[in-house]
Amino acid sequence: MSDAVLLEIDDGIALVTFNRPDKLNALNYDLIDCLMAALDRIETDAAVRAVILTGAGERAFSAGADIHEFAGSVRRGRDTAVRDFVRRGQAMTARLEAFRKPVIAAVNGLAFGGGCEITEAVHLAIASERARFAKPEIDLGMPPTFGGTQRLPRLVGRKRALELLLTGDPFSPQRALEIGLVNRVVTHDVLLPAARELAARIVRHSPLAVGGIITAVTRGLNMGIGEGLQVESEQFAALVPTSDLGEDINAWIERRPPSYSGR
């Protein structure tokens, strides 16, 4: 892994930092590839129970795609641009959305373009009062390509999403909270502690149950209610033979804290 992404693991929580502060943490291909590699490592580490994403420096979570690199792909033609840029970015946001460990964005500054699409894709988000959001792809004569035309309307509603997508106008963290893009807005100095506190409230529960809930919600959003209920049933059924479910039930009956084996 290059230093485009930093990974720190402490007390069951992985802190993943986009590390291009001089470029406002723009998402070049190397950074995206490094993020995917970090997720591979986190996924197989049973000691890691939650993930926090943030940006290095004081100015940006991520200002979006690296336009200079992307422009080179465009100049090489449609097939190259789709392969190198669109598929890479969509794979990243799809991976974050479907990740079975909770992913929390700690949005510390600008979250424009791809940075906003990451915020849309992750499970939970806390924004600093200094955060600023925008969907500025329209200014480049293109739609969002990392899933923003699909996830944003599902999160905030069609008309709200279209206003943001068609104008490209930036909006405040308070507006992001109002429309449901983030869960909470906090003062800048407590952003990471607030993200860690939220993660801690989740990881006290069974990791198998957490993963099942994430999977059921993520898959069910793109299904009819009948199909979604079937996914919910499947996720419950998968837990029945595990020790975690029995331990949780016994702990509740015995009025004691549960102890999980994760099997």
Rank of each mutant, 00 (worst) to 15 (best):
G220L: 03
A251F: 09
G157V: 03
A121P: 12
A209F: 06
Y260F: 13
K101Y: 03
G147F: 02
D79E: 15
L27K: 08
N108P: 09
D139G: 05
L239P: 06
E120C: 15
A98C: 13
A134Q: 00
R88H: 14
G148F: 07
A209I: 14
R20H: 09
E69M: 08
R130C: 08
S128K: 02
E234I: 06
G113I: 05
Q235D: 03
L31M: 14
R20Q: 07
R201F: 10
G211A: 03
G72S: 08
S233C: 09
V86T: 04
D189L: 04
F70G: 08
A98T: 15
S233R: 15
S259E: 15
F133E: 03
D244K: 15
E58D: 09
E97S: 15
I213L: 05
L166V: 11
A195Y: 05
A176I: 13
I214K: 00
S243R: 12
A60H: 05
R83M: 14
D22W: 12
R132M: 10
F171L: 02
V16I: 13
P207I: 02
D169K: 04
A125R: 06
T145Q: 10
L165G: 12
F236M: 10
M223S: 14
G246M: 09
L7W: 06
G109D: 01
W252L: 14
C34Q: 13
A161V: 02
L191H: 00
R59L: 15
E234F: 03
T17Q: 05
I104F: 02
V185D: 10
P102V: 00
C116D: 12
R201G: 15
P153H: 00
R49P: 02
F61D: 07
D244A: 14
P193I: 04
N222Y: 14
S259Q: 11
R41V: 15
L7R: 07
T242Y: 01
P258C: 07
A209T: 12
N28I: 08
R75S: 14
A46P: 05
R41E: 15
L110M: 11
T218D: 09
R256Q: 02
R204H: 07
A56M: 06
A195D: 04
T44H: 09
A216T: 10
N19P: 09
R132Q: 04
I202S: 01
A65S: 14
R75K: 12
D30L: 15
G114M: 11
L229Q: 13
L229G: 13
Q174H: 06
G224F: 05
G89N: 14
I253W: 11
V190R: 12
L31G: 04
D10M: 09
E58G: 06
E178H: 12
L96E: 05
A65E: 09
H188Q: 04
L181T: 12
A56F: 04
E232F: 07
L140G: 13
P170Y: 03
Y29T: 12
L198E: 09
F99Q: 00
R196G: 04
R184T: 10
F146C: 10
L155V: 09
R49I: 00
A105R: 06
L6H: 07
Q235F: 04
L192Y: 01
V240I: 10
H188M: 02
G157I: 01
Q150G: 06
G228E: 05
